[in-house]
Each structure stands twice: as structure tokens, then as C-alpha cells.
């Protein structure tokens, strides 16, 4: 399968706290990229003792070619949904790598160059479900990252979710997409950092 965009090796980390839906998001995003868009994806995650509220992390290595080493070494994109995660993983970001934070939760960013959207607040205020923050984030990613295609992600959601949950998730996804478009209308169509 030809992938929509040629990517050598793109390393993405989703990080935050347990209960924010980070592990689910990692799976959905990985499945969408691998099954719908045809990329090679290796997704790994932190396996701490099972408890809510602890640190949570999901890593994706994405490439148009087979992936030898499945773990990220230098991140192209770090998504942080908590201040601690942002502080801890910022140093893993490569030179010129991008940072995306939930700016309702991350008040101090280590750099001035970052993308910020209030995923959790948006989910709570506009949808009434704080747990939908991860889908809002996915929508934003589909706008901000050129090779994450909104159409493919939506299709991925349709195949993986039961109809009962689909509608609310798609709504959250759309919200993220629209908000990101509104705030950052000028993102590139090709990934240039790597």
C-alpha cells in the first residue's frame, strides 16, 4: 500500500496522567495510521502498576518503511496533557521537534514555540464529557500533523467503535479538528522537521 506521504521515521509521544485516555488514543491513532493509511507503526506504552492518576505514556514510531527499532529515541512530536509529563519528556524532543500541550493543564511550557489547545476544558464545556478530551486531541492532531488524515481517522473510529459510542466520539473529534483549524490555520501540508 502506498502511504499518503513519504515518512522516514517519525516519533510521537502522547503523555499525561492515567485516566486521560492516552493509551486508548495511542491505539486508535496507531490503528488508523497502520490500517487505514498503510504506514508502518510500532506503538508501545508505559506499563506501570494499574492505577488511575499515575503517569501514562504511549509512544508511536511511524514510517513508510519497516521499523527496526520500535522505541522512540528522539521525539518529533511530544503531546503533553500534564505539567509533569511536559517537564519530564521535553528533553526527549529532538532539535526542531514540536510540542503540543493541553494549555488548560500545562501552565508553564519550557519553550515559547508550541501548540496549545485546552482539550480537557473543551471536552468538559462543549461536550459535557471530560473523558472525551482524547478524541478532541485526535481531531487536533489530524489538523496539525499533515500525514494524519481526518478522513482516515474517522474511518478508523467507525470500524473500531461500537455504534453506541461512535457519535459522541466523532463529535469530539470534529470539535478538536475545528478548534485547531481556527487557532492554527497555517500549518504546513508536509512534515518538514525530520
Amino acid at each position: 500500500m502506498k502511504t499518503p506521504q513519504e515518512i522516514q521515521r517519525f516519533e510521537l509521544r502522547l503523555s499525561g496522567l492515567g485516566g486521560q485516555g492516552i493509551l486508548t488514543l495511542g491505539k486508535v491513532l496507531g490503528a488508523g495510521l497502520a490500517l487505514e493509511e498503510g504506514y508502518y507503526v510500532a506503538q508501545t506504552q508505559s506499563y506501570g502498576p494499574e492505577a488511575r492518576g499515575g503517569a501514562s505514556r504511549s509512544d508511536l514510531v511511524i514510517s513508510s518503511h519497516p521499523i527496526s527499532y520500535p522505541k522512540p529515541e528522539q521525539l518529533d512530536l511530544l503531546v503533553a496533557l500534564s505539567q509533569e509529563a511536559c517537564n519530564q519528556y521535553y528533553r526527549n524532543l529532538k532539535n526542531g521537534g514540536f510540542l503540543l500541550v493541553d494549555d488548560s493543564l500545562v501552565k508553564q511550557t519550557p519553550t515559547n514555540i508550541y501548540w496549545g489547545l485546552p482539550f480537557t476544558t473543551l471536552a468538559k464545556d462543549k461536550l459535557g464529557i471530560a473523558q472525551a478530551a482524547n478524541m478532541v486531541l485526535l481531531g487536533a492532531l489530524a489538523h496539525l500533523v499533515p500525514f494524519i488524515l481526518p478522513r482516515a481517522m474517522k474511518k478508523g473510529l467507525e470500524t473500531s467503535l461500537s455504534p453506541r459510542f461512535l457519535e459522541s466520539n466523532l463529535k469530539a473529534f470534529q470539535l478538536g479538528l475545528t478548534q485547531a483549524k481556527k487557532k492554527y490555520p497555517d500549518v504546513g501540508t508536509q512534515w518538514t522537521s525530520s
Binding site: G30, A34, A42, Q43, Y47, I67, K71
Partner: peptide, 10 residues
Amino acid sequence: DEITAHTREK
């Protein structure tokens, strides 16, 4: 090993 078992791929 833990990595192989806990990596998701297509």
C-alpha cells in the same frame, strides 16, 4: 520479551 509482547504493530 516485554517489548515484543507489548508493542502494537500491523
